[in-house]
Write a protein that binds this DNA or RNA. Structure first.
Lengths: 365, 365
DNA sequence: TTGCTTGCCGAAACCGGTTTCGTTCCCGAG
DNA sequence: CTCGGGAACGAAACCGGTTTCGGCAAGCAA
């Protein structure tokens, strides 16, 4: 409900409207509209003529006015979640840049809302869609069971997932194949001679966690190494949690000589944790992680990680969503990409066996 | 220009329109509209009746349709800049959350675009405004000379600055008084016994840099300390630049025992720089900074900094912009707030005099 | 020549709101 | 009882686009 006090000013003053263009050309409004929207029943000559003078007069169709007839406002919706600690923070800027760039190339725009989780987010999305502030949504950070996808599907609202789902149904999605990166990380560590390799996963509620764990296990399998379940932890999405997980792993009788982290934010916690135990990452403990946030370059040694191109992901998602809104079947709207290895200095050949490492840690206390 | 291929689907299917509400009540569309928009010529009884059934039927006015008559779409515009290294990255999430929250409380939404600097950004803003994807703009990171403010002012587009300008004119703004924080930082260090205090500023093209330098100088003055111009650097907006500045300062014959940084991202660079020289922050070199990004808590020792509440700032800016769009004179739309001290362990009493520190550094080489 | 397409465009309806204008009804003053 | 004046609302115009419908002219076959 609007509660504006003033009855509105002169309104859209200097704007050039479709009527102005039509008048200048001596044709009907409808002709201009059809010419600009590539209707087939307009002669090529007229089309060119209209296009040129429209351009020359600086005519820009009012998205709002189009929307009330077409039902579309050429806007991508993105609802971010606040109540996750800060896990998505580093990606945001790049991601937005990608979405915005692709959107603006198609003359679309981006409507952003931030909301808490759960029902509030669903309400927000419904409001945005009902007011046509968004023609469809990019759904970031998919959960294994995702209420947003369920709602949007049942309401018939176009959407594209950033990530996949267990019950993927007929959803459109884009994802980076994190499982491949995890597999490669294990292969790399095994190649360096590591035998006891731990895995610190993110929150199991996220779908990517399950995939990455699968990747880790299949990598271990391929390397001929057994997975010690005591070396597989999860729920680490922050630096604090990562530090704690590292502490726990290094306190085991037969500690790992290498840790694969599912997310960088958690991996950063390995550095203070190692410092506390008088260990050096790279020398005493190898670490490989995933995401490629800039902070990885500022640890000592730099953190070896798999870099995700969030800008490209954003652009891809925007492109897919626009196609979904235009009516393409979602089965044709599925793409994936790979993360690329960013070698730092945090993964090297093990200097000690696991048993020696345990003794060294205890001696340091 | 739209290049959609399909002639559009069924269009706004299940939506309940103002006509539906009017029909259900047996009144005219206009009556419903006036009732909901608090026109004075509607009886209180009718107003209540309309309001209730509208609510019950789940009626939500289509923002687009309102816009073509009123000229306003209830959307806040925010154009972010990509080509600054990453300086604004950490704030973004909180800031967006604040803007979005305040916007949604007023039934407004947020349109975000990302663009390079210079002319491209101006074009983007013009396009957003002409299509009424935004009724006005929040202008973040003001420059001392700001082309955006100039353009918006001359085109009569409402806007609110996050920060101030040299030629402030009749602009509306919100800002955190960083100069006060710098002054307090100096007072704090002087109180701890530091005499040679350096200042590493951000880029001089930003307006805040000039203000913060003023604050530093006035703090030195108040503490009865002379400013050694060799200890005043600028242009450090990134961790790399901060590290370099620290190196330079510590290479001076009579090095500072404390450094005040204008931005956290630069201050973080002091840690690797100190490590290279075998110095410990807090013990051998005190550091105080400004911004309050989360990373400050993860250095050893934690970085003492002045924390800016970006969420609150975003909310305030949204509120001011909405009032500006509604026609309030911008002289009444100016507010400020203070940053609050976050004590870490990076500022302590100097353990050595400047001369001793210099010897210690040289000995370490 | 007539009749039937087909291509191209003008006129007008329409989308969902807002705002203007005018009418009806009621009240109190004269 | 009449009349003037507000209060409250209906009817219709309007905003800037899109889309439907129909008409005119040209082209072509019969």
């Amino acid at each position: 409900m609007s509660v504006d006090t003033k009855p509105s000013a002169k309104v859209l003053s200097g704007r050039v409207t479709i009527g102005d263009v039509a008048e200048a050309l001596g044709v009907a409004k409808g002709t201009v509209s059809r010419a600009l929207n590539n209707y087939p029943d307009i002669s090529e000559a007229t089309r060119q003529r209209v296009r040129r003078t429209a351009e020359a007069m600086g005519y820009r169709p009012l998205a709002q006015a189009q929307a009330i007839r077409t039902g579309r406002s050429r806007a991508i919706g993105l609802v971010l979640q606040t109540d996750v600690p800060g896990a998505q923070r580093p990606f945001l800027s790049d991601f937005l840049a990608g979405v915005s760039k692709a959107a603006s190339e198609a003359s679309w725009t981006l409507t952003v809302a931030v909301s808490g989780g759960g029902a509030e987010m669903l309400t927000t999305m419904e409001r945005l869609f009902d007011e046509r502030k968004a023609d469809g949504f990019i759904v970031p950070r998919t959960y294994a069971q995702d209420a947003r996808a369920k709602l949007l599907r049942q309401r018939g609202v176009p959407f594209v997932l950033y990530g996949r789902l267990q019950d993927i149904g007929d959803s459109a999605w884009f994802d980076i194949l994190g499982e491949d990166a995890m597999r490669e990380a294990v292969a790399r560590l095994a190649g360096l001679g590591h035998q006891r390799i731990a895995f610190v996963n993110g929150g199991k509620e996220y779908n990517f966690s399950q995939l990455r764990e699968d990747g880790f296990r299949s990598g271990m399998d391929a390397a001929g190494l057994a997975v010690d379940e005591a070396l597989v932890l999860d729920g680490a999405m922050t630096t604090e949690a990562g530090a704690k997980a590292t502490h726990n792993l290094l306190g085991i009788d037969v500690p790992p000589t290498a840790i694969v982290f599912a997310v960088d934010m958690a991996a950063l916690g390995a550095f203070p944790a190692a410092l506390d135990l008088n260990l050096q990452i790279g020398r005493d403990l190898s670490v490989i992680s995933y995401d490629g946030i800039p902070e990885c370059a500022w640890t000592r040694p730099p953190l070896t990680t798999f870099r995700v191109d969030n800008k490209k992901a954003g652009a891809k998602l925007a492109e897919l969503l626009i196609r979904a809104v235009r009516g393409e079947p979602s089965e044709t709207l599925r793409e994936s990409a790979h993360a690329t290895l960013w070698p730092g200095g945090s993964d090297r050949s093990p200097r000690r066996t696991s048993a020696d490492l345990a003794r060294y840690i205890r001696a340091g206390q």
